[in-house]
Simulated scan of single mutants.
Amino acid sequence: MQLTPTIAVHLSLALSAVAIGPWVLWARMGATLRPQLHRALGYAWVTCMLGVALTGLFIRDFRLPNLWGYTPIHLLIPLSLYSLFRAFRFLAQGNITGHRKTMQQLYFWACIVTGSLTLLPGRFLGQLIWGRWLG
C-alpha cells in the first residue's frame, strides 16, 4: 500500500489522537481539576478522532480479507462515531461518569487496540516499521 494523501492525513490525525488522549484524560483526573485544559485538548482530540473516522472510510485495502475493500478494522469506524455521539450526549445530560467511561473506552479501543492492529505486517504502518525501518 502506498502513502496517499488520504492515508497521510489519516495517519497524522491518528498519531495526534494517540498523543493527545492521555493529556485529556490526565487533565480531569485526581484531586486537581483542569477544566480549561481538559476542554481545549478534548475538542482537539475529538476533532482528530472525527477526522480519523471519516478519512478511514476512504482507505480501502483489497489485499487483506475484505468486503468491497473494507477490512475488519473498518468496523471500528461506526463504533467510534457512535461513541463520540454517546459521550457528548452523556455530557449534555450532565452524566459526567458516563461521559468519562465512554471516552476512556473509546481511547482504549480506537487508539490503543486499533493502533496496535495497524502494526501488523500487512498494514501500511506495519510495513513501514517492520519492513523499512527495522527490516
Rank of each mutant, 00 (worst) to 15 (best):
F88W: 07
G21I: 04
L57D: 01
G98A: 04
V24I: 15
L3V: 11
S80Y: 08
R28C: 06
V18D: 06
Q127C: 07
G98H: 09
W23L: 15
G98Y: 01
I59Q: 00
G30H: 06
L119S: 11
S80W: 10
C48N: 09
T97V: 04
W23A: 06
R34W: 13
I20C: 07
I77S: 08
W45R: 00
S80A: 08
N95K: 12
L67A: 07
T71L: 00
L128R: 02
T6L: 03
T4S: 15
G30A: 03
M103D: 03
G122F: 15
L37C: 11
L57P: 13
L119W: 05
H38T: 15
S12C: 04
T32H: 12
Q93P: 15
T114F: 09
L54W: 07
R63D: 11
Y70H: 11
A110R: 10
V46S: 13
L67G: 07
R132I: 10
K101W: 12
R100V: 10
V52T: 07
L91A: 12
H38G: 04
V46G: 04
G69K: 02
S83A: 13
Y43Q: 03
W109Y: 12
L15P: 00
F62D: 12
T32R: 15
V52E: 10
R60D: 12
A87R: 05
R123T: 09
M1C: 13
Y82V: 04
F62P: 00
L119T: 10
S83H: 08
V18A: 09
S80M: 14
T6M: 06
V24H: 02
P22I: 03
A110D: 15
V52P: 10
K101T: 15
G51D: 07
T32G: 12
F85L: 02
Q104T: 02
A40M: 14
G126V: 12
P5M: 01
F85H: 03
I20L: 13
G51R: 13
L134K: 01
V46M: 00
R39V: 10
A8N: 11
S80F: 04
R132A: 09
Y82N: 06
